[in-house]
């Protein structure tokens, strides 16, 4: 690939621009509140782990991370397992209403979460799922399932049809072909789709906050508690923020080689 002149400088500047606010958050999480409020220091002069210690020892704090991860993982599993057969169907067959169905799915990916907040609240209260991880996991399906279908359809289309035909000639039944042959072939695509489901479920707050109250509050909602009568607990807020970045960073590290094609939704 041919690049432009001065590319190293541009890239370096952009990366600094991306990292500077994150650095500031990390920096603050290691400072005492007294240091944050009183002086402007570029690095913590009296580094402290007190904020992290508090999060890891206080159950009302660390349970938030567990709650969030719980519905994110549930949602990823549901999304991928229902999207896989559908992606195969969209990629290989024409059937009544296929194009309309695909468009309808896609339009749900674009629907603003704010529109659904209140009706979801009513719906999940009525069926007794309110304040469980299932409610959030199912609610997040509205944008993750269409996305998973879309990405996986691209990857399934990359598998030559001859492979299906050969497998069926060899006497494979459909479920066996699906699990033994197709799934391993598009494993990287499944990884990319799972990454996207994880990402969009992890970063969403509005629905997650609306559908939970006490038992399963996500970490994002708990973070708003740092405002108290004594003012903002900035250090604690920063530490909680840093800890929400870590799962995402870990996930990126594992899929870094697939990021580029994944972001093009398998369609470049």
């Amino acid at each position: 690939m041919h690049s432009i002149p001065g590319r190293r400088v541009i890239m370096a500047l952009f990366l600094v621009f991306l990292l500077l606010p994150i650095y500031w958050l990390v920096n603050m999480s290691f400072k005492t509140n007294a240091e944050i409020v009183s002086t402007m220091t570029l690095w913590p002069h009296a580094p402290t782990l007190q904020h992290y210690k508090r999060i890891f020892t206080d159950e009302s704090w660390y349970s938030g991370y567990i709650n969030s991860l719980e519905y994110v993982v549930l949602n990823t599993i549901i999304s991928i397992s229902v999207a896989l057969p559908a992606a195969y169907a969209f990629s290989r067959y024409r059937f009544l209403g296929d194009k309309h169905l695909f468009f309808w799915l896609l339009s749900n990916r674009m629907a603003p979460a704010a529109v659904y907040a209140l009706p979801f609240f009513n719906l999940y209260s009525a069926i007794g799922l309110f304040d469980t991880p299932w409610a959030v996991a199912l609610a997040h399906c509205i944008f993750n399932v269409p996305l998973a279908v879309w990405i996986l359809e691209g990857f399934v289309s990359g598998v030559p049809r001859e492979i299906d035909e050969t497998a069926f000639l060899d006497g494979y039944s459909f479920p066996r072909f699906f699990i033994k042959i197709l799934v391993p072939l598009i494993a990287s695509g499944i990884g990319v789709a799972a990454f996207f489901c994880f990402m969009f479920s992890w970063v969403e707050l509005l629905l997650a906050r609306t559908l939970t109250s006490v038992q399963t509050k996500p970490i994002a909602a708990i973070m708003t508690r740092t405002v108290s009568a004594a003012g903002m607990d900035w250090g604690l807020l920063a530490a909680a923020g840093v800890l929400t970045i870590i799962p995402g960073a870990l996930v990126i590290w594992f899929v870094r080689n697939y990021i580029a094609s994944g972001f093009a939704l398998g369609r470049v």
Binding site: I219, A220, T244, A249
Partner: peptide, 9 residues
């Protein structure tokens, strides 16, 4: 990295 940070964060 910025894409995977929760929106409220």
């Amino acid at each position: 990295l910025p894409l995977l940070i929760p929106w409220n964060v």
